[in-house]
Amino acid sequence: MSGPAGFLIFFLTYAVVYAILAIGLNIQWGFTGLVNFGVAGFFAVGAYVSAFMSGSPSPYHLGGFGIPFPFALLIAMVVSGLFALILGIPVIRLREDYLAIVTIGFAEIVRLIIVSERNITKGPYGMGVIKPYKEVISSPMYGLFYLGISLAILAILYLAIARVVGSPWGRVLRTIREDERVALVLGKNVNWFKLQVLVLGSMVFGLGGAVFAHFFNFITPNHFLPMETFLVWVMVMAGGSGNNLGVIIGAVAVRGLWEGMMFLSDVLPQGVQIGAVRLGVIGLLLILVIMLKPEGILGERKTASDIL
């Protein structure tokens, strides 16, 4: 499919990828108040791992191991989670502003490794990623088919996360967000919960990375700039931290704004770069959300526990 329908499918699939990332960050920041500025790092890990796992063998990069798509996704999640675990065990106890710097540094290091280790990742040249099930789906319909897969993944994720954030586990997370000391006097092992949240959220980022890789079919280190992290932050903060439906709407809206700015090129004077404008607009959004609407546009639902 091409033309407007093709563009719509492209746009929606891209939005689904970000909705997945936004749900991951919502678990960490929205529900627990855990600051992770390293979203792009885990996103990259998921994308590259899934690419290594699913591709056919190549002398130019690690893998491929020809593993079926669903398993490649799972492995991408597990490896992302392992990265989070290894990073988290020492640093989870740090104060939130230190954690912010450490995680942003972590994501930059991940990107640096991808750029530098050309034998593994093909470095800045980027590597191709397979289209799953392309043998069974006719190519004009493939975009729609993959959108369907992505939506199904998002739906499963949404339900799985809704179940735990509405449980006593989720209630502990909110307690930690509201006041760590209260969580402590109620006997909750705060660092252990935070570590779980860091790992679970990062597994979701890994999943987002994998879905992205198989959608784009070509990944380079430039897909994982710190900007990606801040985009997801805008989605979560604008959509309403602690509200998964809100952050999905946030993801679609911010993605729409991002793509929409492409049409600015007709209006803007010659030579003005869309990339620079986008950078500025996202920066402005971050500032405005904190200054005008720190609780997000939709806000949180009232009952924390809804398991009954």
Binding site: P168, R171, V172, D179, R181, L186, T303, A304, S305
Partner: peptide, 17 residues
């Protein structure tokens, strides 16, 4: 130190060990 953005009942229900 109450958990401000949680309801009263949730403030209590989180407590049991």
């Amino acid at each position: 130190r109450e958990l401000q953005k949680m309801t009263v009942i949730d403030n209590l229900m989180v407590a049991p060990l």
